[in-house]
């Protein structure tokens, strides 16, 4: 398993190369954010070994990559469930039920923020403004899928959909 974490797949490396090409030749470090996302997509989370592999590939110090991974909220430095659900509870969303939506998910799944269900399926996170407050309540599934207008029926549907 450990060995797995230290290696990125050829497909992941190809995708990282495409990111590196966006920046001046002497600025490969600029691709570290994207590379860490690609690595997280592949491994499910970011173990230290994977962060080091990304750093080595980009020719930067592992500590510098680790600093980045720990600074930005959407990197998972610990294992998460198959579905990570992040609920926005900031004020604009809260006015339209953001906090209530989070409470509803907590009750349904029997977990609190930053917890994972016993079957390893769901992790719940509290998020900050996602720039979608007009669609409140909003949730993000696995960082990339935005779900809008999440009233009880929609939440039920979403949870049922997550197999």
């Amino acid at each position: 398993m450990n060995n797995d974490y230290e290696k990125l797949s050829p497909e992941a490396l190809r995708r990282i190369d495409r990111e590196v090409a966006k920046y001046p030749a002497d600025q490969t470090q600029s691709a570290v954010m994207a590379a860490l996302v690609i690595a997280q997509d592949e491994k499910g989370w970011l173990p230290k070994e994977t962060i080091a592999a990304v750093a080595n590939y980009l020719g930067m110090a592992p500590m510098a990559a680790y600093e980045v991974a720990s600074f930005y909220n959407m990197y998972d430095l610990h294992p998460v469930g198959k579905y990570k659900i992040t609920v926005c509870t900031n004020l604009p969303c809260a006015l339209s039920g953001g906090v209530h939506a989070a409470d509803y998910v907590k009750t349904k799944l029997g977990i609190d923020f930053n917890e994972t269900t016993a079957d390893g399926k769901f992790t719940l996170k509290e998020g900050e403004c996602m720039g979608a407050c007009g669609d409140a309540p909003v949730m993000l599934v696995n960082n990339k899928r935005m779900c809008s207008f999440m009233l009880p029926d929609e939440i039920d549907k979403l949870l049922a959909e997550c197999k």
Partner: peptide, 10 residues
């Protein structure tokens, strides 16, 4: 012109 994707930091 290129796009740089953030990852959660206000």
């Amino acid at each position: 012109l290129f796009a740089h994707h953030g990852w959660g930091a206000y």
